[in-house]
């Protein structure tokens, strides 16, 4: 016997010190922030309070993007295209969606973030990344 049960629970996560700055910049100014690690000499995007590599504290956030390079991509069964994007000025890749174009993407191609009109302070304030020329290749 198989029983199907729903689980329906609302969660509310505190973004915390650095991620709050990151999300507020997305929402209010359509800016993408990253944090430099002074010890590793890398710039981590999205901004976070400690370096994922060495564990040390990060420095004051800096602007990266909004243009960047497509690192890799895959098309999901529901038709959305998931991508790793290396924003200009950052040393780590951001997971996001690709938008527009004819569905033909090539690793290494140039991209640009497209921001939504009404933004709420969430990573989805970036609607997706599109070809820097405004369309797919």
């Amino acid at each position: 016997m198989i029983r199907t049960e729903s689980i329906h629970i609302p969660f509310t996560y505190a973004a915390g010190g650095t991620s709050s700055i990151f999300l507020a910049a997305l929402r209010d100014e359509a800016r993408i922030l990253a944090t430099p690690c002074p010890a590793c000499d890398t710039v981590i995007c999205p901004a976070r309070s400690s370096c994922p590599a060495c564990g040390g504290p990060t420095a004051t956030p800096v602007d990266v993007g909004p243009a960047g390079t497509l690192v890799s991509w895959t098309e999901l069964a529901d038709g959305t295209t998931l991508a790793l994007v290396r924003l200009d000025g950052a040393d780590t890749s951001l997971v996001h969606r690709l938008a527009g174009g004819d569905g033909t993407w090539v690793a290494g191609q140039r991209l640009r973030a497209r921001f939504g009109e009404s933004r709420t302070g969430a990573i989805t304030d970036i609607v997706g990344f599109e070809s820097e020329n405004g369309a797919g290749r």
């Binding site: 198989i2 729903s6 689980i7 609302p10 969660f11 973004a15 991620s19 302070g121 969430a122």
Partner: peptide, 19 residues
């Protein structure tokens, strides 16, 4: 001085259990 932002996420999933 920084606004503290919350991220709301609704868990709304169906699970299938074998008896």
């Amino acid at each position: 001085r920084v606004e503290r932002l919350d991220v709301p996420i609704l868990m709304d999933e169906a699970w299938h259990y074998a008896s």
